[in-house]
Design a protein around this nucleic acid. Sequence first.
DNA 1: TCGCGGTTTTCACATCGCGTTCACCGCAAA
DNA 2: TTTGCGGTGAACGCGATGTGAAAACCGCGA
Lengths: 109, 109
Amino acid sequence: MRAEQDRAQRYRAGRLEIRPDEHAALVDGRPLRLTVRELQVLTELASNAERIMSREELYEGVWGRAPRRSDRSLDVYVSRLRAKLGSALPELRLIHTHNGIGYRFSPES
Amino acid sequence: MRAEQDRAQRYRAGRLEIRPDEHAALVDGRPLRLTVRELQVLTELASNAERIMSREELYEGVWGRAPRRSDRSLDVYVSRLRAKLGSALPELRLIHTHNGIGYRFSPES
DNA sequence: TCGCGGTTTTCACATCGCGTTCACCGCAAA
DNA sequence: TTTGCGGTGAACGCGATGTGAAAACCGCGA
């Protein structure tokens, strides 16, 4: 249900636009080269912008199940997203860590 | 039970809003960078606003057990909270010391 | 069936941030 | 002054997070 909303909806953050329905994330109209998982994680975060999402909640939203203890996949994807977003939008910090809780999507300079 | 109330509830003090359920404390909508413990102490204080809480009561409410003699953690957290709240809300004094007793949360200019 | 390119997941190590304690200071009460 | 309490900077140990690299996986075409 939420996933369907995600697919239908679009999200903006500065020059970044996310179009889950088209499997695309654009910066100034140019598509970023994101893999499916990367886009899923980004979409899940962007659809809850300004809110701190716990790692469990975020993981559940993307993988559809609870993370196993010591599953680091999420961290790896956040890292890769930051790398790709960072080189396309050097002036924006989009994904913020909240230690001991999770992550928060919010455009900040 | 009280902990559940705390999680569900929100607290306001001037431009400060505390949302324990979202692990967040906001000033003008911007999240303060508080650690989990810091937010717990702040929430415990705010949920007993205008009341003098003894250090034992306050400690018990956050740590879930009685403080050991000469445990100074609480003082340190109060100090850190004052620092962070003070730089975000310079005009407000929120946490008041009652010597020999404990602390009281109360918005005063 | 096999190999290949791209993707996802796991691993290992580096780094960071938090909770706690310690040390020292100032202050208030007596 | 003395005594005890609270304020706070600093340090420390450890768990959480960042991240490059390897391994596992997967779809596809030869």
